[in-house]
Write a protein that binds this DNA or RNA. Structure first.
Lengths: 192, 192
DNA sequence: TCTGCATGAGACATCCATGTCTCACTTGGG
DNA sequence: CCCAAGTGAGACATGGATGTCTCATGCAGA
C-alpha cells in the first residue's frame, strides 16, 4: 500500500505542477524554473525532483498537450455526422487546452524534428482526415488543402488563446469565433 | 562627403544585418548573437557596434516590421474598392514580411505593454477599420468582431509563414490560402 | 513516541549568452 | 606613402538560469 499511496500522491502533485506550469508558461513562455515552482506552490528543489530539468518539464507539458488533444479528438467524435459539426465539436472540446497548445505551438517552431513527433503526427493525421472527409462529402471546398486547413486551425486556436489572454476578445466567444471563421470566413453568405 | 558616405554605408550594412537576422530568428527565435553575426557575415563585435545588444536588435526588428507593415498597408489601398479585394491586396503585399511578423507576433506574447506599442496600435487600427468598413458595406458578416478578424489575420499569417518554412504548404499558395480562408472559410458556397 | 521520507531553504558549482575591451589587420582617402 | 577608421578575432568579466548538494523541518505511519 505504501507503494500505491506513494505513487498516487506523486501523480496528483505532478499533475498539479504541470497544470500550473502550463498556465504560467502560456502567459510568459520564458518563465524561470523558480517562477514555475513558486506558481505551483513548491520549492525549486521539489520541482527538480519531479522533473529532471527544464527540458523534461517542457517535454512533460508536450505529453500533456498531446494527450489532452487526443482526448478532445475522441470526445469530438470526428467521424460522426456532418464534418462542419465535427469541427465545431472539436474546437469546443479543445478550448480548455488552447493556451497550452498555443505555448507548444510557438515553442515547436524551435525544436526541429526529434522529440515526440509521433504524437503530433497522429493528431495531425486525425484532423487532416476530418477535413478530407468534409471535402469528400462535398461540405468543404477543395481548393484549400486539408494540410493547410489543419495548420490554419492551429493558428486560429493560438490567436484565439492569446487574444483572450490579452483581453482583446471575450473568453465566451472563443469557440464561436474560431469555428465560425474557420468554417464560414468573414464574407457574408447570401442565403442561409 | 565622408559623413554622407559613412552614413550611407552604415545604413546599407544595417539593413542587410537586419534582414538576415529576421530570416534567422524567424526559424530559430532563440538564435545567439553569435549566430546572428555569422549569418550576416560579420563578427560579433561589429554586430554589437551596430546594435547595443540583443534588445536593441529585437527592437530594431520590431521597427522594421512596423514600417514594412505600414508600407504594405499603404500599397494595399485599404480604402479603395470592395473590402474583400482590399483584404486580398493586403495579404499579398504583406507576404514578404510574414516571417518577420510571425517572429514578432510570438515574441510579443512575452514583452507585455511598454515598447513601441504605438506603432502596432496604429496598424491594428487601420486593419480593424478595414474589417469595419466591410461590415458597414454589407460585405462582411457582423457576428465576428473586427478586433477578432484582425487577430485572426495575424494568426493566419503566422501559421502560413511557419507552414511554408516547414514545407507543409507551397510558398506560391501562401497568399491564396490565407486570403481565401479568412474571407470564405472552409465551407463550400452554394452559389458562385 | 519513534522513525522514515518528502519537503523547503539555501549554499554552492557550472554553463552559456551577453557585454566590454584590446589589438592586429586592411582598406580607402589624403 | 601614410594615416585614420572600421573590422575581425579573441580574451575577459558579468549575470542569470540551471543543476546538484546538504541539512533541518514537518509529518504520517508503525
Amino acid at each position: 500500500m505504501s507503494h500505491l499511496g506513494y505513487a498516487r500522491l506523486m501523480a496528483v502533485d505532478r499533475d498539479h505542477v504541470l497544470r500550473t506550469a502550463a498556465a504560467l508558461l502560456t502567459r510568459r513562455s520564458t518563465a524561470t524554473m523558480d517562477e514555475v515552482a513558486k506558481a505551483a506552490g513548491i520549492s525549486r528543489a521539489t520541482l527538480h525532483r519531479q522533473f529532471a530539468g527544464r527540458d523534461a518539464l517542457v517535454r512533460a507539458l508536450e505529453s500533456l498537450g498531446i494527450s489532452e488533444c487526443e482526448a478532445a479528438l475522441g470526445r469530438a467524435r470526428l467521424d460522426e455526422g456532418p464534418a462542419a459539426e465535427a469541427v465545431r465539436r472539436l474546437v469546443r472540446e479543445i478550448e480548455p487546452s488552447a493556451g497550452l497548445l498555443a505555448f507548444l505551438y510557438s515553442e515547436n517552431q524551435l525544436f526541429e524534428g526529434e522529440e515526440q513527433n509521433a504524437g503530433w503526427e497522429r493528431i495531425d493525421a486525425r484532423v487532416t482526415a476530418l477535413f478530407r472527409r468534409g471535402q469528400d462529402s462535398g461540405e468543404f471546398r477543395i481548393d484549400l488543402s486539408p494540410a493547410w486547413l489543419t495548420e490554419a486551425l492551429y493558428g486560429l486556436l493560438a490567436a484565439g488563446a492569446w487574444s483572450v489572454l490579452d483581453g482583446k476578445v471575450a473568453r465566451n466567444d472563443f469557440t464561436f469565433m474560431i469555428a465560425e471563421l474557420l468554417l464560414g470566413g468573414a464574407l457574408r453568405r447570401e442565403e442561409s
